[in-house]
């Protein structure tokens, strides 16, 4: 596979990158890990006359955790770094789980978490759990900075809210509420390295014996990663029971809109949404109970 010809710049600061991106016009693309972009360009699916590489921008690297503000993951941070970071493992185990499940070792050593979101694959492994955890993204252009909820970020396969002159600079995840728990569950045809056929992220909180802030996000079963809001509503304010988890999972399955492709049939996916949602609810609930005293 030979790549088509293009120009390349590697700015050292965000300002330089924004300038290059604006000046570059229509044919300009941002390059982070390149694990999606290089493949798409090699296959002629994406054209670019100029690549602006962002990995050399110091300010976009790193993971910061503050117990009151939460987690901030810079746009140039590798998925491998997210998967192994002690604060992510301790305070955001489901986020670490999803990062660790993404692709294989080499890809995790190249690809960035921000890139996984910006590529906007319906199956993006890191999207459901970040949606469930109420993540936001910071977006910067020469005109200014805005922050938007990940709920409003995905527009379609490969399509996001990002304007052509904007750069996603960091992903922000709020701190976990008291007595809350999250979970990431997935299934894929080959188990380890391949793209998920279905993935599910769940977050919930216990208020006494009542469930609050229930968020259920599904991947690879709609044109974008999606929230199963009707399923969430069934559980919100209710008391935990296995029967309820079963009922909520069935509702999530009804809400999903999967297609048949090489990885799985629509029918199988719909069935798996229900199975994985139930597992995710059970794990998130168990974690919430465990976090009760913390």
């Amino acid at each position: 596979m030979r790549l088509p010809k293009f120009d390349y710049v590697a700015p050292k600061t965000l300002d330089e990158a924004l300038k290059a991106l604006t000046a570059g016009g229509e044919g300009c693309r941002l390059l982070a890990g390149g694990t999606d972009l290089m493949v798409k360009m090699g296959h002629g699916l994406t054209a670019a006359s100029l690549l602006v590489a962002i990995k050399g921008i110091e300010g976009l690297h790193g993971i910061r955790f503050d117990p009151s503000k939460g987690l901030s993951i810079g746009a140039a941070t590798l998925i491998a770094e997210v998967a192994e970071h002690p604060d992510v493992l301790k305070y955001y185990p489901a986020v670490a789980q999803a990062a660790r499940k993404t692709a294989n070792t080499q890809i995790r050593n190249m690809a960035t978490l921000a890139g996984n979101l910006c590529n906007a694959a319906p199956s993006a492994d890191n999207a459901p759990v970040l949606l469930a955890r109420g993540a936001e993204v910071e977006v910067v252009s020469q005109k200014g900075t805005r922050q938007l909820s990940l709920d409003d970020f995905f527009n379609g396969p490969g399509q996001t809210e990002l304007a052509r002159d904007e750069i996603l600079t960091q992903i922000l995840v709020p701190p976990a509420a008291k007595a809350s728990g999250a979970s990431y569950q997935w299934i894929s045809p080959r188990g380890k390295v391949d793209i998920s056929a279905v993935c599910v992220g769940v977050n919930l909180r216990l208020d006494g014996d009542v469930l609050k802030d229930v968020r259920i996000a599904l991947g690879a079963v709609a044109p974008t990663p999606m929230r199963a809001t009707e399923a969430e509503a069934l559980m919100e304010g209710a008391k935990w029971s296995e029967a309820l988890a079963e009922q909520v999972s069935a509702k999530a399955s009804e809400e999903s809109r999967p297609i048949t492709d090489v990885r799985a049939s629509a029918e199988y996916r719909r069935r798996m949404v229900s199975v994985l949602t139930r597992r995710a609810l059970e794990e998130a609930h168990a974690r919430a109970v465990e976090n009760w005293g913390v």
């Binding site: 596979m1 390149g34 290089m38 690549l51």
Partner: peptide, 9 residues
Amino acid sequence: KSVSSCITL
């Protein structure tokens, strides 16, 4: 760090 050299510029 291990990487895939075929998709690394």
